[in-house]
Design a protein around this nucleic acid. Structure first.
Length: 742
DNA sequence: ATCATGGCATTTTTT
DNA sequence: ATGCCATGAT
């Protein structure tokens, strides 16, 4: 990047919008950097600006940047924000999740490890099915040793970079011995099927980098600057991966918050962030403690709660926004009263205070808790969305459809084969299927080869042979189309039609089946979109499957549709809402009993902290004295976390809403009205306080999009602008968009 | 091979 | 209470 005047100006603008510690982090030159970013302290802004700074200052070209996040959504958002700062040159940057970066590397390097480039990626369910099959093959009682538990052990071992041999060396009891055997078999099976589970993506990249120094040299030279978001959630394999890529040039920036580490149960290793300074004694450490999201009261409460954890990196969040409203804590009779209370408050906020439903979120510890709430909302006809729960790509019909495509791409994939062989029913039962699978293994054939020649499978009956012949002849035709490079949407439609899958669903004539058909149509749409943008030279099908394996539908979640949002506390991380309710603040639920038993109380506290710090304006915590647990009644003790909030910050007033239920005007508080109005002002000014403030109706000017008018203002500094020209309607971040008022 | 009934467990889950 | 899985009947 040459330093013409315009570029210098942009570089200066870049820093203009930052506070002192943010600027320090952004302008840090080469060498290790640890950014301890408290909740709502603008860490994404720091990351995006730092990337822009590295490029503006000539320290890196866009292609030399590797920026890693944990979710596709975060990656996408970061890419958009960086593109807004840098323009199209940002396109060559790697901004992706650990897993997709690894998948991309392995698409190039997997042959070195004995896989083909068409390797299948198994999700957790696929992997569990394979674990189960391995256990059965070993004659293990899957009631005593559940596939889930064994899978968790194997996954834990992989995340610590222990292969089956290393694991076997460490085993103690009988269970672990069994796991060791299962692990070994599981690995062999995966490899035989040319498949990797999620953990393998990381492990195999580590392997390839360790085994082939020239490969390591290539990637570590290619990524001159590596930046990692949510560093507190990395596991050991990811840690090692970063060492291998960034260990030499040491241009590693990690951003995280130990107080928000909530994925320990998935082997995230909080030590990675706590020990960063031991790994890099010369690391620059920057703390971001100024919060741009919440009121001081909310921050004080959250700070007080998290202060009860030991061994953390001390941070104290503060804001210059003023105290705001007290934290509301309400005790209700049972979970139904709890739901009615939340409902009443939602109505009050919307009817009396002009809040929009999209500004309201309700969090809970476990998915099951959403049910009562949903019932209440449905009855009240308040639109809502539940984030998480059953996912699109986990639905049976979607997995089936993808299973077909997978088998077309990877004829060795026995898991895919087993999934679809008799779906729809075509007379291939458990027994026949097992015979084919066993024969394939014994004869060293792929399942495809074994099934294509059913006459050669010992013990197969006449009707079964006929069934396989018919099935495989259909599949062979489909495969020809796939290999000819047919568009995925077309291929998928052919699959659904030719295999009789759609026909079988249509024959059911149930509402449920209709829903499935609609889901499949949606998948075809996804494929169509993929076809439209795919321009790679590699196999379309391989690329499509790889992409689909690593996305979840929460990535496509829309969050501003005029609906209330319901989700678990885990799903809430990284989000913010003006109004937050956390229900079920009861001992045993939050903190969860099982977590307490496992010694994970501090993680529960962090979870609570994450939930509290999502709230911008109003935070309400509720619990029920009585609740139903699997049919019987349990009596609740208020969560210990409630007691950790300083009483002077709390409104425990038993308002009329506590027992009265539906939308009584009795809960009306004039104080809240004014503070609400004040909040909207702040929100429209943008999270960074850049000074620019926009209101609906303002005429604005954008250097690229031209003239426009503001049609919407959202919290978080997002404005919607309708432009006069080609640009149409766009959402822009006030902080980043070069938008001026006319 | 497929359908129906009973038994058992029942966290969170970015990938 | 509910949903998933295994076992037995057709």
């Amino acid at each position: 990047m040459p330093s013409d005047a315009a570029t210098d100006q942009r570089a200066a603008d870049l820093l203009e919008e930052l506070n002192e510690p943010q600027r320090e982090a952004v302008t840090h030159g080469d060498g290790p950097l640890l950014v301890l970013a408290g909740a709502g302290s603008g860490k994404t802004r720091v990351l995006t600006h730092r990337i822009a700074y590295l490029i503006h200052s000539g320290r890196a070209r866009p292609g030399e940047i590797l920026a890693i996040t944990f979710t596709n959504k975060a990656a996408q958002e970061m890419r958009e924000r960086v593109e807004r700062l840098l323009g199209r040159s940002a396109r060559t940057m790697w901004v992706s999740t650990f897993h997709s970066a690894c998948a991309r590397i392995l698409r190039a390097e997997a042959p070195r490890l004995g896989y083909t480039r068409q390797f299948t990626i198994y999700d957790q369910a696929d992997s569990r099915r394979l674990v189960k099959r391995c256990l059965e093959e070993l004659g293990v009682d899957t009631k005593r040793f559940t596939p889930a538990a064994v899978q968790a052990q194997i996954s834990g071992a992989k995340n610590r970079l222990r292969d089956a041999d290393a694991y076997a060396q460490l085993v103690g009891g009988y269970f672990e011995q069994t796991v060791a055997e299962a692990y070994r078999l599981y690995e062999r099976e995966l490899h035989r099927m040319n498949a990797m589970d999620f953990d393998d993506l990381l492990v195999n990249v580590v392997n390839v980098l360790q085994l082939f120094p020239e490969v390591q040299g290539r990637y570590s030279a290619a990524f001159r600057h590596v930046l990692v978001d949510e560093y507190q959630d990395t596991n050991h394999a990811q840690y090692r991966l970063l060492q291998l890529i960034a260990g030499e040039h040491r241009n590693l920036t990690v951003v995280g918050d130990d107080a928000q580490s909530i994925y320990g149960f998935r082997h995230a290793d909080i030590r990675n962030i706590l020990d960063f300074q031991d790994d890099f004694p010369d690391a620059r450490v920057v703390k971001l403690e100024q919060n741009y999201r919440s009121t001081q009261t909310i921050l004080d409460a959250a700070n007080a709660v998290i202060a009860n954890n030991r061994g953390q990196m001390h941070k104290t969040l503060w804001t210059d926004r003023g105290p705001g409203d007290p934290i509301v804590i309400r005790e209700l009779d049972d979970e139904h009263a709890e739901a009615r209370y939340v409902l009443g408050e939602i109505r009050r906020l919307v009817d009396d205070e002009g809040a929009s439903l999209s500004e309201i979120a309700c969090f809970y510890r476990t998915n099951a808790q959403s049910r009562v709430l949903e019932d209440a909302l449905v009855r009240a006809e308040i639109p809502y969305q539940v984030v998480g729960g059953t996912k699109f790509y986990e639905r049976a019909e979607i997995k089936d459809a993808i299973g077909y495509l997978t088998l077309l791409a990877n004829p060795a994939d026995a898991i895919a084969f087993a999934r679809i062989a008799n779906s729809p029913k075509r007379g291939i039962g458990q027994t026949s299927l097992q015979r084919v699978l066993a024969h394939a293994e014994a004869a060293g054939l792929t399942v495809w080869e074994a099934a294509a020649d059913p006459g050669g499978v010992p013990g197969l009956g006449k009707p079964a042979i006929r069934a396989f012949e018919r099935f495989m002849s259909t599949m062979a035709q489909l495969r020809e189309r796939a290999e000819a490079g047919a568009p995925i949407a077309e291929l998928l439609e052919a699959v659904l039609h030719d295999t009789g899958y759609l026909e079988a669903l249509e024959a059911e004539r149930t509402i449920e089946a209709q829903g499935r058909i609609e889901n499949l149509e949606e998948l075809v749409e996804v494929a169509r979109e993929f076809d439209a943008v795919y321009d790679g030279e590699e196999s379309r099908l391989d690329a499509f499957l790889q992409q689909i394996a690593l996305v979840s539908d929460s990535d496509t979640r829309r969050d501003d549709e005029g609906v209330v949002t319901l989700m678990t506390l885990h799903n809430a991380k990284g989000l913010e809402y003006p109004v937050v309710f956390i229900i079920g603040c009861v001992e045993g639920v939050l903190p969860l009993q099982r977590a307490i038993d496992e010694g994970a109380l501090e993680e529960e506290r962090r979870l609570c902290y994450v939930g509290m710090t999502r709230a911008m304006r109003t935070l309400t915590l509720t619990y029920a004295r009585r609740r139903n647990v699997y049919g019987s009644t349990a009596y609740g003790v208020p969560s210990r976390f409630l007691a950790e909030i300083p009483p002077e910050l709390v409104d425990r007033d038993e308002g009329p809403a506590a027992g009265a239920g539906f939308g009584t005007a009795g809960g009306y508080r004039p104080r809240a009205v004014s503070s609400w109005a004040a909040m909207r002002e702040v929100a429209s000014a943008g999270a960074g306080g850049s000074g620019a403030s926009f209101a609906v109706g303002d005429d604005v000017l954008h250097p690229a999009f031209g003239e426009g008018v503001v049609t919407g203002v959202e919290p978080g500094g997002v404005v919607t602008v309708r432009f006069a020209g080609e640009a149409g309607e766009r959402k822009l971040m006030v902080d980043y968009a070069p938008l001026t008022k006319r």
